[in-house]
Design a protein around this nucleic acid. Structure first.
Lengths: 192, 192
DNA sequence: CATTTTTTGTACCTCGAAGTCAAGAAAAGA
DNA sequence: TCTTTTCTTGACTTCGAGGTACAAAAAATG
């Protein structure tokens, strides 16, 4: 019973993700969000409660998608070093191709948020843990397959890959120097 | 001629740095800045022109200090791996000790700013280049001293160290797990 | 000490961010 | 079809961000 929603909430959240990616949480106004989502400001608040709740929803959507892509690469059949390389290169390519140089919404949000008790902050923490876990699992499997020395600590390697990945996605926001970034990717892959 | 300033502009900028570190550029209001700087809002605008100019001044102050500390460590007499380790550990320690978990103003600002033409963005880019340069120079010297294999690309290594450093300073904002961070430091040092 | 020049701080201004609301529109069910 | 329930929207409200203005205060200079 009751009127059905005119817009698809999932699509609307995707649009919100785009908005937050471009301008960050703080600098994106409700009006801007509503415009980009193709709905009225009232509908936005009716459907999502507040800007912050919409932000959390956006983070969840983005994190789901990111994690799926991460898994798609890291659980693939290629040699582990190729997978890691492909992962990092895909970020560099995507980020450099974007004229706004948005970078990663998760990374940017971690840097932007200040309240560690905020649900969004907690979510971001979990999200990063999940990513690390996917990488680590892939490295463990690669060790079992003899692709990586068994005496290396997979948690340490996974941490380094993740840190490099996060660092790359920050650095890419300030440079156009693809060669420099490619060197970082090379160096990261060679540590494995 | 004319009345002398009651406050020391350098000290005031240091206070502004603290404010921006805690809450970021966007979320720090002029009133808040004035309060923490111990001056009136009018004086703030009289002395610094605008919030954005004060921000740039704050970045410059912070970057100067950071670069000096970076040089102090990286140009030291110890073995290169010890120096890199000490560098990374000092960040982890400092960041974890801080209850607000502010992280690095430069890293946070890179993530927060969206306008790449903004003088602040350009400054941040140059600042990161300077850091990389200091690290790379130290690595080149270490190669000359036989501490590091001569056939490794110092630019690649420096980039990796920097990316790991930046990544660490993002990750440290979401975790309390010192052991995990220590593993990342270990792994980074071992790549050299 | 008078003048000039600069600093100081508060009161004030404007504008837009964030959110609310009332009135209407549309779907589902009796 | 009429009712009920939910959705939609632009107008409205509130509040604080960012910045200005002005009058008082204080230092340097003659």
């Amino acid at each position: 019973m009751g009127r059905a929603k005119k817009f698809d909430p999932d699509v609307a959240v995707e649009r919100a993700v785009d908005a937050f990616r471009v301008r960050g949480y703080g600098e994106t106004s409700p009006q801007e969000l509503a415009d980009r989502m193709g709905i009225g400001k009232g509908s936005l608040y009716h459907a999502f409660g507040s800007k912050h709740e919409l932000f959390l929803k956006s983070l969840e959507h983005y994190a789901d998608q990111s994690l799926a892509e991460l898994k798609a690469v890291m659980e693939g059949p290629e040699p582990i070093r190729d997978r890691v390389r492909r992962l990092l290169e895909s970020f560099v390519d995507a980020d450099l191709r974007d004229p706004d140089r948005c970078g990663c919404l998760i990374v940017n949000s971690v840097a932007e948020l200040h309240d560690r008790e905020d649900p969004a902050s907690r979510f971001l923490g979990r999200s990063l843990e999940n990513s690390e876990s996917v990488i680590r699992t892939a490295l463990v499997a690669a060790q079992a397959a003899g692709e990586i020395d068994a005496d290396r600590d997979p948690a340490a390697l996974a941490g380094l890959v993740q840190a490099a990945m996060v660092g790359l996605r920050v650095l890419v926001k300030t440079t156009d120097d693809r060669a420099r970034l490619a060197l970082i990717v090379d160096a990261t892959v060679q540590t494995l």
